[in-house]
Amino acid sequence: MKTSFSPYAQTMGFEEQRDADGRLVIAMPYSDGVRGRPGFVHGGALAGLLETIAYATLSEALGEDDRPLIKPVNVTATYMRGAVEVTTYARATIERLGKRIANIEAIAWQDDIEKPVAMAQINVMLDRSGRS
């Protein structure tokens, strides 16, 4: 299933990919637009990447027939290493997909997935009240 990217995701230069297991991965190529302090990716750009992969993975899990409004409730981002001037990748795992709430964990890495640069715990509300 193709995930349609938001204007924000396009602005950030996100690219949709698949890993060897067919799991959705989003790549964020390094550019001046994601730079924070010199030589490093901005923490806000990493958080935006982690949120985007979380919502895209959730959207894919819900499938074509189930399109609730995905409303972000909160995001807790933890930064583990400085992300340098190379492409950053992210993938997400849905810990629980309920009727109204989904709990998602996302990680971001660069050269080695075993050495993540950041991770995030993301909780969202699924609104099936009829809007959208």
């Binding site: 924000y8 806000g44 750009a45």
Partner: peptide, 24 residues
Amino acid sequence: SETLVTDTASGILASGPIFTLMDM
């Protein structure tokens, strides 16, 4: 900015830029 919205139809800002704003 329309370049930062999460959904063109609603025009709602993505949460990423707000996260960056608060980080800064």
